[in-house]
Design a protein around this nucleic acid. Sequence first.
DNA 1: CACGGGATTGGAAACGTTTCCAATCTCGAT
DNA 2: ATCGAGATTGGAAACGTTTCCAATCCCGTG
Lengths: 339, 339
Amino acid sequence: MAGTPTIAAVARHAGVSVATASRALHGQGASPATADRVRLVAQELGYRPNAVARALQSGRTGQIAMIVPDAANPVYARMTSAVQHELAADDRQLLVAQAQEASAVAAAIQRFGPQLIDGLIVVPLRPGPQVLDALDRASVPTVVIGSLPESARQGVVRADSRAGVRLAIDHLLERGAHRIGFVNGPVDTTPGRLRLEGYREAIAGAGLEHDPSLEVAADDFTYAAAMPAVRALLDRAGATAIDAIVAANDLIAVAALRALADRGIDVPGDCLVVGMDDTELAQIAIPSLTSVDLGAAARGTLAAAQLLAVLRGDAEATEHTTVEPALVVRESTTRRERR
Amino acid sequence: MAGTPTIAAVARHAGVSVATASRALHGQGASPATADRVRLVAQELGYRPNAVARALQSGRTGQIAMIVPDAANPVYARMTSAVQHELAADDRQLLVAQAQEASAVAAAIQRFGPQLIDGLIVVPLRPGPQVLDALDRASVPTVVIGSLPESARQGVVRADSRAGVRLAIDHLLERGAHRIGFVNGPVDTTPGRLRLEGYREAIAGAGLEHDPSLEVAADDFTYAAAMPAVRALLDRAGATAIDAIVAANDLIAVAALRALADRGIDVPGDCLVVGMDDTELAQIAIPSLTSVDLGAAARGTLAAAQLLAVLRGDAEATEHTTVEPALVVRESTTRRERR
DNA sequence: CACGGGATTGGAAACGTTTCCAATCTCGAT
DNA sequence: ATCGAGATTGGAAACGTTTCCAATCCCGTG
């Protein structure tokens, strides 16, 4: 095959110059007659503009990169899916990269040269100085999904983890819980830190005394890592002493369900459980899981929309947006009525 | 800022021509002395080659696109993650697009012009004529994860769904099951078709008679869609008549767990359940789920590796690879011994 | 009929690289 | 000292597009 036809071929076949052909295809400043003719010829030849050449000339590639801690994690998978969907509507492509460690995140940010992408969405688990530095050095508009200092020069879309935990705890108190355990993920992550703060605030706000033995943290936001943490909490607090558990995560909540079941503690009869993220897991678990929807998909959509607005020049690059959490009540906090 | 430095700037500062600078940075055909000097200057200036310009010149972009039905689905999320990981090791970027309907898949394949990507990985749920046609028209090396006619000009990495179902059924027979129900996904998809075939083969192979009332198909491979199908199966067959269920999917299997629990049928006491894909869900479910690992991550890794081999010229573009399934036995098929 | 202004067009530069080709240089062998 | 082969270098083309600028055309007005 003779390779894909270039605009020069189109121009030649249409009997016009390359410049005119380009204008005709763009709809700018060519006479209607020639524009039609050129478009027809382009169609016949199956001409498709070379995106790379256009990018070189215009400095824009139509590509957005996204860096997530782990694409296989359901929460980030949903975010990615939402971002991709939003970008596709604007005819842009999404590049996905995974990076968990601070150095890897920083490296990933640097790797995307300014020429390859028009914008960047970063989901940092631990936005330490190294990551912040890399973000500041990034040469394209950037939106961070997570929390950043107020002074950050990047756009930010964040969940309100604190309010989310408060929602969960208020709900539990309302349902009569008194001793509410909290199973967190790593405290050195942004979500871990904020959720712990939220827990303490809500407990204090309810007039309950702060009991450190009710708090426990897993090494990771995973089922496997959560299991020993939950067991430790139950051992430590005495199984009967806890009448509700808030988990920083649906995966952790499911681990709690399992640990409780293993000890013969009925949920929701003897102990209530609330998860977070409202992943599909929450609907599926037995008993189904009351969960706080922190708006993973919404954050993805919003981050993408915000980035696109900045690229269009319609918005400030540093806008901070917060997605409100919502409680979804299911069996794990609902007293039984046999169906 | 003066924009990012170009190779011309580097050349000027190093006192050499652009051509020499290019060679020096490539390590090809420049004297060691100049190469060092140029590299030093490049470092000082913070020079980073313009990927777009290089792509225009070389015709290669270092980008691979992947089209999945739904990035949020755990199975595809894992595949995507595995592909991204494999590509990153070769310094390539992954573009992710989502398309479910045949026309959308075809459109997505076409959208990626030959100039934007070096290769393509497609995961088609329903590889009908429209998709096959688009695949044949794709102008870059392509690997399909799924099943394609033997004559296909694309590379193929497939799971052995048939063998997987057989594995599940042999296991159930071994554990004493006699009447094994099958809850499938849509039969017009490749996995749906193959898994049904596998079921029938295995049943026949075991000398059991084919009972259509034991087969049921959900409208989609999801929990929500599976629930009515499972209920229909239980209603139709009479709850006691079934002593085991094979699900085409972990999500479907979990729906079965739920439906059985709702009817007071104990798993594994009264009915055994086997899922497929061995997602995290299988470990997490209560009871934990025996599941057939069809190698989602392995297929992703293999597809990426195969594509890279083709791009390097190390492999045939049309190679067909099959990933062997493996059974992971858990509680849902294990007679109780209280822990 | 001449003139001027707007619409339309074409030539060529520019984007930043890589690579072909020819020119120059180095250095050992005659 | 001369030659020549190989190493090293620079000029320039090429990749395919957009866009600046100047040239041309058309058409209505004076």
